[in-house]
Design a protein around this nucleic acid. Structure first.
Lengths: 156, 156
DNA sequence: GTGATATAGTTCGATGATGGAACTATTTTT
DNA sequence: AAAAATAGTTCCATCATCGAACTATATCAC
């Protein structure tokens, strides 16, 4: 049962995802927020970074949650004072989700240690290497999503 | 609000973890098994790859689950015909978890499309590059776990 | 060695995150 | 103008999860 370097890399990617799950689960417990709520914060922060605000539908897709579960999630986040919901004028069915300052600072506190650690690791690499790693991760993300979508469309 | 290549890489790593979560969630739904059960299968397969069999305690740590949740998880997997539990002779408090053939084939079916996709991506790289990427991912895993442990020990 | 303490796993009961079905309100299509 | 599609919510039932308490085994202290 020998393992090629390629297969080893596949397993390392999987182990990285598992370790990330552990981080979220553990940090969520320490902060008294649930896994899903933490992931939601991360996703909304990601949208903000791109300069946009997600809708419940965006969140539903990003977290693979049903519509009712997403509503419940947003209710929780709202009760925590983490988000505001705003009907859009363009299409009055749609709701836009924006973070409060408190959500940003709490979210930062949750993910900061992880980010710091990753930056520390990355700082040991050259700009060219960082560029290379970014290219790879970017394609890995596309690959994971492609594999999922292939599964989903196959089983109709 | 410009973003350095280093910070971008951090975000790509995070997005990779999120995409992996989506894959597990989606594939789990298609196969009628829950997220946690899928992750548990992946972890047990990982232990098998290393030539060992995990205990409930190992699983509990790997999945960040409480002891009762782990027992419930193992009950589910056993009811599905996916695992066997065996008390060890060395220490009779400990239980060893082994997969059935069915679990291996079902687990393979669940993760195969993802693995294939990743292998396809990796095949475009040279052995030296693959080695380099493996090094990086390995350290990233350590970094994530270190960040988590730092959080955990800080909040005692 | 024997009693005290720690460790591995389980059972029990309660909480709450989640999904399916049905609903409202808007927009788009025909 | 009617029909169909889309976005989000409410209601209800299920079940994964945790804390507390328990059993059994192993280790530690003296």
């Amino acid at each position: 049962m020998e393992s090629s370097p390629s297969l080893e890399l596949v397993h390392l990617l999987q182990r990285f995802a598992q370790a990330s799950d552990r981080y979220v689960e553990s940090t969520g417990t320490l902060h008294g927020t649930h896994r899903t709520d933490m992931n939601a914060l991360a996703v909304i922060l990601g949208f903000e970074r791109e300069g946009s605000a997600p809708t419940p539908g965006d969140l539903s897709r990003a977290l693979q949650l049903s519509a009712p579960a997403t509503t419940a999630l947003l209710d929780r986040l709202q009760r925590l004072g983490y988000i505001q919901r705003q009907r859009t004028d363009k299409d009055r069915r749609v709701v836009c989700i924006t973070l409060t300052d408190r959500a940003r600072s709490d979210g930062r506190a949750m993910f900061m240690p992880l980010g710091e650690q990753m930056l520390k690791l990355i700082s040991r690499y050259t700009p060219e290497q960082i560029e290379f790693l970014g290219e790879f991760m970017s394609q890995a993300i596309s690959g994971v999503d492609a594999a999922r979508e292939a599964n989903e469309s196959q089983k109709h």
